[in-house]
Design a protein around this nucleic acid. Structure first.
Lengths: 244, 244
DNA sequence: GCTGTTCATTGATTGCGATCAATGCGCAAC
DNA sequence: GTTGCGCATTGATCGCAATCAATGAACAGC
């Protein structure tokens, strides 16, 4: 039935995009069979990244984008004066490396928070192909635009929200992203430390810890180390707003 | 000598991109004459926006990008619970509206801070043309990527910097952008109110006011209402780092 | 000219989150 | 099992920026 050839890489068996279970997340819909086959040629190789290891580092020459197949990443910016800021947490189906296009070098570090695997997408090939396939071009533009909107939402969070509101917003966001991948919206394991959460949310790790305890005391959720169990998702959403 | 036809719009005389003095800022370099001519056809029309008026509002259908020809804009996000956050200030040569591509609707409000004029770039046309002209495609991708990097820098600012450091970073950034447009790096007029600066930097307007007074007391600059005169640009850059 | 409004500055006080500090838990190495 | 280390929690205190409040300056409209 499926006549698409499955390329083999040194990493092992290659799963073509057309057969990937993350297809709805990273690929545009509405491609013809012919187009799908060409998009399959986009993926240069797979790459495994062990927990704690970098996918790329700031300053490295930018060549490729990366689509996460399995695992969990963080991206962080380190300023000249040594300050670190986690700028995002990425999970399966999400695209990394967009920040490198502008300068030709990566502008942040990307590190695996657990053993992970990514699809390497040579940017040259993507550019070529998106010139030929309208749908792919538009999809790519959408992905970049959504990244900008996401960043603006984080700016709003950092600029206007109080510690507990930030925490609630963070958890609700994670919940939704797990849910859209078919996992439970109400129970999941955090892959990052309190310190990394704090960096992302502009808080100290102690404040994150206290905030989680507080949400637990209010009965909205249970925390056990990295395990989160949300009891009242609606109330948690309300806790994102002031004067809850 | 110049055989490019100059289209006329209802707004008055059209200046073609190829003849625009902002060309280095918004257009890719290295286009052939033929390509330049086609890029000239990108601009649908000009549009004047009076001070205080919106260029677009959140929720409106996204059709076009806008390149600022003259003037000054702010973009702001308004959350469901009514919180406002200024996400950026834009000046001549910069592109607005990228946030609308992802959803097909604008995701923030864009308002003129002074009487301004923009070039309207229908997104459909840009997509088509960037499929034909590699250089244009790559330039557009770079612009989007730089926007992402810029947003990450703001996240760093909001997440890790203290009030006075934020203010210094803000002023240094403005200074550089004025300088790259041929204006003075050390004297300029702010187009935005203290409240708008505060919203952008995650501070209250009083804190902005105090911070400026403090920088003035330290002899780094002079403030007179909206007029800023920087005396020690190097020291101001140092004030962006902790323990100055 | 005066009046009203918006914006900016400055002072006094409060409160949230950072900092400092100590304890406890979980997990890997041996 | 024991040791050691990283991570999380909780308490006490401090400091910066938010808040409250009042005054002053700039500017548009009448």
């Amino acid at each position: 039935m499926n006549s698409v050839s499955i390329p083999i890489t040194t990493q092992g068996l290659q799963v073509a995009c057309s057969a990937c279970n993350l297809r709805e997340l990273c690929m545009p819909v509405g491609l013809s069979d012919d187009e799908l086959e060409r998009v399959d040629t986009l993926i240069g190789a797979r790459r495994k990244v062990a927990r704690g290891m970098p996918l790329y580092l700031s300053g490295e020459p930018f060549q490729s984008l990366y689509a996460i197949r399995t695992g969990f990443f963080k991206t962080e910016v380190i300023s000249e004066d040594g300050r670190e800021q986690v700028t995002g947490f990425q999970m399966a189906g999400e695209l990394m490396g967009l920040d490198g296009i502008g300068t030709g070098n990566h502008n942040c570090d990307a590190r695996a928070l657990e053993d992970s695997e990514v699809c390497v997408i040579p940017f040259n090939r993507l550019s070529e192909l998106s010139r030929e396939i309208d749908t792919l071009q538009h999809h790519f533009h959408k992905v970049m635009s959504r990244e900008i909107v996401r960043d603006q939402a984080v700016m709003m969070l950092l600029g206007t929200m109080r510690a507990e509101e930030r925490l609630a917003a963070f958890l609700v966001n994670l919940s939704q992203r797990f849910a859209s991948r078919g996992y439970s919206a109400t129970e999941f394991n955090l892959r990052m430390t309190r310190e990394e959460i704090g960096s992302y949310l502009g808080l100290k790790l102690e404040t994150v810890s206290r905030g989680l305890s507080r949400l637990q005391d209010e009965g909205l959720l249970s925390v056990s180390n990295k395990n989160i169990r949300i009891h009242k998702l609606d109330d948690l959403k309300k806790a994102m707003s002031p004067r809850c």
